[in-house]
Design a protein around this nucleic acid. Structure first.
Length: 268
DNA sequence: GAAAAGATTAAA
DNA sequence: TTAATCTTTTCC
């Protein structure tokens, strides 16, 4: 066990991070608990859930709609394409989801295939929570848990486009660029959001206190893409052919913010 | 208790 | 094309 030290290696461990008390590495379950405490009421189902007329501009935060829990309580195959265009927010960073993959029960590529374990427990939890795991020992992968409690289903967020907080994104990524290389790839999304596996099981439908950006992680409504592309999922060659070949990868069409490989994506 | 594999990325 | 890197899960 080499383990030089148990220092929480978080992607965004850059020294000049703007967050004050709630640092990435300082994030812990206590913080989660308090954040989750109910004393805050929000109308997650406002009369006008759609955000049209916001093509490029950033929607003002107090008009934003947080997706309600019931939005997530569907089959991962249904949830996945609906996540395209939606927004992930943490701090001043807002990312628009451009590419996802669905993972489902009885799916030989799904992390839930071994049943409930310490790592995968959130996958079997209530839809609308995050499932964050470490891949290849270094990349934090963000999934949106789907379906009802007890069902092992989730949607991996593979790529995003930046909406706001570009400087923070670049800082966390360690790259000063506006090109797709900034956010196309699941590990990059996790790094840009500055999350660690401690964020696994964090609810994405619970607003920050008073709706301000206090370090939470939320899924906000966003414009639906006009056209989408589908294809087989990436990096699951070990799975059974029927699952490896299933077209459960979804992407926004006509955007450069898509991860490789792109040549396996086709119109539905 | 040990070994293998992995929903990847960046650099050569 | 390949090294980096380490947790999770399985097997003995």
């Amino acid at each position: 066990m080499k383990r030089t030290r148990r220092f929480k290696r978080v992607a965004s461990s850059k020294p000049n991070k703007p967050i004050s008390t709630t640092t990435d590495s300082g994030h812990d379950s206590d913080t989660l608990t308090s954040r989750r405490s109910k004393s805050m009421t929000i109308r997650s189902s406002s009369p006008e859930p759609k955000i049209n007329s916001v093509p490029n501009s950033v929607p003002s935060f107090d008009k934003v709609t947080i997706m309600p829990p019931q939005f997530f309580q569907v089959d991962a195959l249904d949830l996945a394409p609906r996540l395209l265009g939606k927004l992930l927010r943490r701090d001043d960073v807002v990312l628009q989801i451009t590419e996802v993959e669905a993972y489902r029960p009885n799916d030989s590529a799904c992390h839930g295939r071994f049943g409930v374990t310490a790592r995968t427990a959130p996958v079997f939890g209530k839809g609308g929570h995050a499932y964050v795991y470490l891949c290849y020992g270094l990349h934090t992968m963000l999934n949106v848990v789907a379906d009802k409690e007890g069902v092992g289903a989730a949607v991996l967020v593979r790529s995003c486009a930046p909406v706001s907080g570009l400087k923070t994104i670049q800082q966390r990524r360690g790259q000063i660029t506006e090109k797709p290389v900034l956010l196309t790839g699941p590990g990059k999304v996790g790094q840009a959001l500055g999350i660690s596996t401690d964020w696994s099981n964090h609810p994405l439908y619970t607003p920050d206190i008073n709706g301000f950006c206090t370090g939470g992680l939320e899924l906000l409504d966003g414009p639906e893409p006009e056209k989408i592309l589908i294809g087989p999922r990436v990096g699951i060659e070990y799975a059974l052919p029927e699952h490896a070949n299933a077209l459960w990868r979804f992407a926004v069409a006509d955007t450069p913010w898509i991860s490789a490989p792109k040549n396996t994506l086709r119109p539905p």
